[in-house]
Design a protein around this nucleic acid. Structure first.
Lengths: 249, 249
DNA sequence: CGAACCGTTGAAAGCATTCAACCTCGGTGG
DNA sequence: CCACCGAGGTTGAATGCTTTCAACGGTTCG
């Protein structure tokens, strides 16, 4: 399952014999060999013994669950810098597969836990990551629970695009994954995804740029259609009405 | 953003005058005053400055998000022993309201963080809770993404019932919340919830016991209808086919 | 060049929603 | 004590969005 191309990076500047001080989670993985995954290849499967934590160095991974009759739900896409495999169950609760060619590094759970336990620097970083992941999961619940197909697609494009636009509304969106992957992530069928994208194109909101990329022709409209209203709005209590900058169209 | 189901144990024996060693998260809150919330009362709102972490001592809380045009999504119900408010954003990303009368204890974020940072005992517990919550969130995504109304209701009854049946398939389910709450949690309308429950009753799978409780007349059927297949099944790779005990009917 | 895969488009069907009326149960006040 | 009211819940009919089933177009690769 693994081809290991070892480009282990040298451990920069630490006096010989001294244990280097870890300051970022990234560095935790830096000394382990990189492994590569081909397109479609699995990293681990739902039900496997969970023995490692992985850091994605390059490429895109999908994590998904399969229920009874074969229905697949993609619960997330992971990009370079993300970690996967975090859990305290002894088996993985989901599967991970490469969407594109992927490079990862791995650490045993024990090694990871020890490192975390021994580093007051690392703990807040881990906590932060887990909180972000939880926030993303809740956003996804909102999407799956109450958004229309159009809103789901717009939300998805915004999410993917923002990742490469420093959080700004993107002018371009590159999709690494297939329509089927998108459908399984958004809780739709491949046909509905396709039809909805076609409509967004016809309305001039996005413009195709190859099959897996779009230019966002009307960022403001895309934002308006994602179903999130302004931002955090009228919610009783201390509802602070935040207003977004107005976008062209 | 945190639910968490914890079974806190009592602090056994600490010598008088000595600072007791904290061994459970529960004890962290034990010395703070209890506060009460009436039915429907809010604990905090989406957008409020997130200054406290709460532990629910008694009752049921709902946490939810509201988007643009007033659509409400309940992302979880919290029971005694659960914690809420965990996050590293400076504002809460969701609101929390009392479903029943509720008693809570609160800790400032700083106090909580300090306690965690200073206790090697507490950290794994917190980590464990966060992982459980993440697992629950993913299960919910599966439910919202791919399950039919009937499967959602059956999954919901199982989830609620198991909480009071030590994880076993329950023989009885008590619902603290209204049909509207259930609908907003399952991504359905109140009418669909009502109709689906009626059908389950007509088929003899559950038997009403007041308006907010059911006897599970056919636990096996309930389990079969929840849409989870056996448990973790055919998933390629090391797919270990696990088989459940067979239930009556 | 053809097979296979991915994506798009069309038509029909289905499940949940919407709109609306009705029921049921507590609580309240005459 | 009982009629009335209102909130929460149930049921019916029509609508609609997404799915399903099916056919077709385009690209890649052997």
């Amino acid at each position: 399952m693994f081809s290991t191309a070892s480009n282990a990076q040298p451990n920069f500047g630490a006096f010989a014999g001294m244990k280097p001080q870890l300051v970022t989670l990234d560095e935790l993985f830096a000394s382990t060999p990189r492994e590569t995954l081909d397109i479609g290849e699995g990293l681990f499967w739902q039900g496997d013994r969970a023995q490692h934590i992985f850091e994605i160095t390059e490429g895109v991974l999908r994590i998904f669950k399969i229920i009874g009759d074969g229905r697949r739900v993609i619960t997330g896409f992971l990009y370079a810098g993300d970690m996967v495999g975090l859990s305290l169950k002894d088996v993985y609760l989901y599967s991970a597969e490469a969407v594109t060619a992927v490079k990862v590094r791995r650490l045993t759970r024990k090694a990871f836990q020890d490192a975390i336990e021994n580093s007051p620097e690392l703990r807040p970083q881990l906590f932060s990551l887990m909180c972000d992941e939880m926030a993303a999961a809740q956003e996804q619940m909102v999407l799956l629970s109450r958004k229309s197909a159009e809103e789901r697609l717009c939300s998805f494009f915004l999410m993917i695009g923002r990742r490469h636009a420093g959080g700004q509304v993107p002018r371009m969106v590159e999709l690494a994954m297939s329509r089927q992957d998108i459908a399984d992530y958004l809780g739709l069928t491949i046909e509905t995804v396709s039809r909805t994208i076609t409509k967004l194109i016809q309305r001039g909101i996005i413009t195709p740029n190859g099959r897996h990329a779009f230019d966002v022709t009307k960022p403001g409209k895309l934002l308006a259609l994602c179903g999130d209203g302004d931002s955090y709005e009228e919610l009783g209590g201390s509802g602070v009405k935040t207003r977004q900058a107005v976008w062209p169209n």
